[in-house]
Computed example of a mutant assay.
Amino acid sequence: MAHNTHANARLTPAGRLALARCVVEDGWTLRRAAERFQTSVSTTRPWADRYRTHGQAGMGDRSSRPRT
């Protein structure tokens, strides 16, 4: 069975989307969303930023491999 989330990820792509929508569309603070989704503000901010920039398509995993 293949899945798209790495083993240590707290949030699935669907969870990331829900978190980002709470911040971007519903006006939640980063802190409120972080508490609700049991993650940190420093984790919440990039997901909200990626949602603002890329929409739902930005919620997937990216490679952590260095580009160079």
Score class of each variant (00 low, 15 high):
Ala2Asn: 09
His3Gly: 06
Asn4Pro: 11
Asn4Asp: 10
Thr5Val: 12
His6Met: 05
Ala7Gly: 06
Arg10Gln: 03
Arg10Glu: 00
Leu11His: 05
Ala14Gln: 14
Arg16Leu: 05
Leu17Arg: 14
Leu17Val: 03
Leu17Tyr: 07
Ala18Glu: 10
Ala20Ile: 07
Cys22Arg: 15
Val23Pro: 03
Asp26Arg: 15
Asp26Ile: 04
Asp26Gly: 00
Trp28Asn: 00
Thr29Glu: 02
Thr29Cys: 02
Thr29Gly: 13
Leu30Gln: 09
Leu30Ser: 00
Arg31Gly: 12
Arg31Val: 11
Arg31Asn: 09
Arg32Asn: 04
Ala33Arg: 09
Ala34Gly: 06
Glu35Gly: 11
Glu35Asn: 13
Arg36Val: 12
Arg36Lys: 15
Arg36Ala: 14
Phe37Lys: 00
Phe37Ala: 00
Gln38Gly: 08
Gln38Val: 12
Thr39Ala: 04
Val41Arg: 10
Ser42Gln: 15
Ser42Thr: 15
Arg45Leu: 15
Pro46Gln: 02
Trp47Met: 12
Trp47Gly: 03
Ala48Ser: 12
Asp49Val: 12
Asp49Ile: 10
Asp49Lys: 13
Arg50Lys: 11
Tyr51Ile: 13
Tyr51Met: 02
Arg52Val: 13
Arg52Pro: 11
Arg52Gly: 04
Arg52Met: 08
His54Lys: 09
Gly55Thr: 14
Gln56Tyr: 04
Ala57Trp: 09
Ala57Gly: 05
Gly58Asp: 01
Gly58Tyr: 08
Gly60Asp: 13
Asp61Phe: 12
Ser63Cys: 08
Ser63Tyr: 04
Ser63Thr: 15
Ser64Thr: 14
Pro66Phe: 09
Arg67Ala: 13
Arg67His: 13
